[in-house]
Design a binder for these strands. Structure first.
Lengths: 236, 236
DNA sequence: TTAGTTCGAGTCAAGTTGACTATAACTAGC
DNA sequence: GCTAGTTATAGTCAACTTGACTCGAACTAA
């Protein structure tokens, strides 16, 4: 009784530590088909626990930055990327996420544009993986990625998130390819186009995409809000 | 330079502390109209900062409980309630939420059934307020409640959350009253009924609600999953 | 018995969605 | 320069959904 009580107070003296993790999505051409697919960068664990396994970019929360700033700093430090969309995902706080000490991780998810993603740092310990072909990750990071994918699919169906995976100008077919890559199913080009033309945030430009093999498609521009505002009402 | 650097390491030595807050919704009859409206319990701050102001129930995260357990313990301790629905809301981690020290709060939101809510403890320092008539709350708790309300409205429109504000048996008109209270607008009874009859999770019982002033309505039962499962895919 | 109210089924027009057809505009290869 | 192949874009049509509305059924209060 006495020793157990002492144990409790001892453990409470070391409060759960706080960390940030980020799931960073970008479109890259598939090696096989060449069509755009979802990829994400992982970092290799260079110390225990889970030494050698791949893990989400992340780190401790420092005292003088907000959660979002910490996520965005982490993203920049590990991959050199600046996200076009960044949103909090979930706080993971299970008791046994980390074998040694108790860690509560606040996970963020981000989208980066392909021009950015092409410049991303890659090294021995930082590498991009196809989102649908990850192996076993460190900690509960497989669950975090699964949840981020679920959230991405939901947000996509709902609204305005697809454009943050594309550059400033895009064709309607490119938007459709984003949907097909993320939702993993074919969409009717004509019907998809009809829906997009009905959304007011997509503005027709006078330009056409030249250099393709067939009829040049018109270029469009997204005029909705950028994805980092704190008041875009998908984040408080 | 030296003193600033020393300052940084000193502040990092005291990491941000972690707390849990819960927004607890229940239906109670309005004092004026008698129709069901949204209420939530608040606790009075008995120490600085914000001493005397009302705040969300909450407290520090103890070492040996998961986030959800901590939320549900908090809820039980301050109000005596057992929620029928409990879900993580958001992690609030702004730098100046608390004037003294840095606190990251993981907010949860809960729904309790009216039978439960009627038994809730109330005292000098715990009181229920109408969700649309809160005064100025401590910390950033007004923003947290606003976000919880937004989330509740969204979930309501989407799906299955309304039944957790009702008892085991209910009439379709009661469900409509929940929607009207939360969304704050009138709904067409006939159309609403048509939609509910189309959802398979609502099962017709043989019973009727007796004792009303008019034609007795049929009683229904919700057969979907309860709201505390970790795998109901609105929580990872 | 009657007036008043809610319950519950049904109708209708407007809008949306998915499957499909047809034409326009461009390139590659001959 | 012509033709075949491919994508872009517009349009049609039936099935389904949604909102506004009507009407009879069933009960209570007086």
């Amino acid at each position: 009784m006495f020793s157990s009580s002492a144990n409790v107070s001892e453990r409470q003296a070391a409060p759960p530590s706080l960390a940030i993790s980020t799931v960073i999505f970008a479109l890259r051409p598939s090696e096989t088909s060449g069509r755009p697919t979802l990829w994400l960068p992982l970092v290799r664990r260079i110390r225990e626990p889970f030494k050698g396994l791949w893990a989400l970019p992340g780190g401790p929360l420092s005292h003088d930055e907000s959660l979002q700033d910490a996520a965005s700093r982490n993203l920049r430090e590990t991959t050199g990327l600046a996200p076009s969309y960044l949103e909090q995902l979930y706080a993971f706080g299970g008791l046994h996420r980390s074998p040694s000490q108790r860690v509560v991780s606040i996970a963020y998810w981000a989208l980066v544009q392909p021009t950015e993603a092409a410049l991303a740092d890659e090294s021995e310990n930082v590498r991009w993986f196809r989102a649908d072909r990850l192996g076993e990750l460190a900690f509960d990071h497989n669950a975090i990625v699964d949840y981020a994918l679920w959230r991405l699919r939901n947000k996509l169906a709902y609204g305005s998130v697809a454009y943050h995976l594309l550059g400033e100008y895009f064709t309607l077919a490119q938007v459709r390819e984003v949907y097909e890559a993320v939702l993993d199913r074919q969409l009717d080009p004509a019907n998809f186009r009809r829906q997009l033309k009905a959304t007011p945030e997509i503005e027709e430009t006078g330009e056409y995409l030249q250099g393709g093999k067939h009829r040049p498609p018109r270029l469009y521009r997204y005029t909705g809000r950028p994805g980092l505002d704190p008041d875009n009402r998908s984040t408080p």
